[in-house]
Nucleic acid binder design. Structure first.
Lengths: 157, 157
DNA sequence: CCCTAACGTTAGTAACACTAACGTTAGGTC
DNA sequence: GACCTAACGTTAGTGTTACTAACGTTAGGG
């Protein structure tokens, strides 16, 4: 495994102030750190972020078609195929044709999947702790709130 | 141009609450919005984010070797080659061998480059305004402060 | 004189986020 | 019923990104 890591500047203090205070740059760097941390922890459990997002969505809104899962997770429907294939191989979800609309598959979370998801929840909580380590609980909440406002604004185009 | 846009969920309100409040996910989505906005504005001026970062660094710390520029911008040194080739073609920077150490190139910002950079500065300011539109000035400053703390913490590994 | 390491450069690559196209199925409209 | 349009799941392919690997050149220390 080629240890994909996108390490930024070796000497962060040499980064120009103009760049250091750019929100878009800081978001990008935050994403790099977040992905490194969460990929590492999830990989230890044999999971990916897409699998986690899919399982959470199934728990949240119950059995759903692949198209509905795509819409709710943001994962492209052509990628969802492989995500679900992985999850059915390990029997964490079940994929069956919808008798009421035979174009659709109905994807269902199995008890084993729910149990595994519980483990992943804890792993993900740990990744958030590691990512947000330098912030107080109040600051973490504030950061999430601000980021949600930005995402809501740009998602509701 | 294939309009690369990574649009997330079509229906954002259907995203599970657990995912919606995940800092790592919000950072990723913020990055998507930020890149879409800044790529679009910079492309209108024929520039890229890497070119901008390189020019800012040259203005900030003066003439430098490609390795130094790599370290300060976070752009990989194998990618820096092409960035500088683009900038020398338009005569915004000059690339000359260092007489004191012939392994190095000394990259210098030209007056034309400085002038162009001034234009790009304004474009980038506009991208930040568009990205952070839903936030007050105080909230924008707070967001930048929090993101800097996170980046500093994880960069100083 | 070696040996090691840094420099710039080129080529290649794994992962990601798509697009395009296909066969199948559903739901209208004539 | 015949037709048309659109949604579904699936596969294959593609452009971009952020790297790794390797190379020749140059510098410096033992």
């Amino acid at each position: 495994m080629p240890e994909r890591d996108r390490h930024g500047p070796t000497n962060p203090s040499a980064v120009p102030a103009r760049l250091r205070s750019l929100a878009s740059r800081l978001l990008g760097r935050g994403t790099v750190h977040a992905e490194r941390i969460s990929n590492a922890r999830l990989a230890a459990a044999g999971a990916t972020r897409w699998q986690y997002a899919t399982l959470v969505t199934l728990r949240d809104s119950g059995p759903a078609s692949q198209a509905a899962l795509s819409e709710r997770t943001g994962i492209h429907r052509s990628d969802m195929v492989a995500v679900l294939s992985g999850l059915t191989e390990t029997a964490y979800v079940q994929r069956a044709p919808d008798p009421a609309d035979r174009r659709r598959n109905i994807v269902t979370l199995t008890p084993a999947g729910r149990s595994w998801l519980h483990t992943l929840d804890q792993l993900v909580d740990e990744t958030q702790d590691e990512l947000l380590a330098p912030l107080t609980p109040a600051e973490r909440a504030e950061l999430v709130r601000l980021l949600q406002r930005i995402d809501d604004h740009h998602s509701a185009h």
